[in-house]
Computed example of a mutant assay.
Amino acid sequence: MLEHQVSSWVELQELLFAGSWNESLHRFRPTLAFRGAPNASHDLATSLNRRGGDYSRQEHVMLRAFRKYARGTSNPCDTLWDWLALAQHHGLPTRLLDWTFSPYVALHFLTENTELYGMDGVVWCVDYRETNRLLPRPLKNQLQKEGADVFSAEMLAEVTPTLSSFNQLTRRSFVLFFEPPSLDERIVNQFALFSVMNDASSRLDEFLQHQKKGVRRLIVPARLKREVRDKLDQANITERVLFPGLDGLSRWLRRYYNPRPPGAPEGL
Rank of each mutant, 00 (worst) to 15 (best):
D54C: 02
V159Q: 09
L135C: 04
E3F: 08
G36W: 13
L107G: 05
W99D: 02
W252S: 06
L32V: 02
Y256C: 02
V196I: 15
Y256V: 03
A153N: 03
L143V: 11
E59A: 06
E154D: 09
D230G: 00
S164L: 10
R217I: 11
L107M: 13
T94I: 10
C77V: 02
E227D: 12
R223F: 14
R129M: 10
R171G: 13
T111S: 12
N189C: 06
F151S: 06
F177R: 02
H60A: 10
D184A: 08
R251Q: 10
G19F: 12
E185Q: 11
N39M: 04
N75V: 09
D43E: 13
P244A: 06
V159E: 09
A40T: 06
N236A: 08
V105I: 02
W124C: 04
H90F: 15
L163Y: 15
P244V: 03
E115H: 13
M1A: 09
V215T: 09
F174D: 07
W81T: 02
T94K: 04
E11V: 05
W252D: 11
R29L: 06
S102E: 11
F28Y: 15
R67E: 14
R216Y: 13
R203A: 06
Y128F: 15
N132E: 06
G263W: 14
R67C: 14
R133N: 03
D78N: 02
L63D: 07
W81R: 01
A148H: 13
R137L: 04
V123I: 15
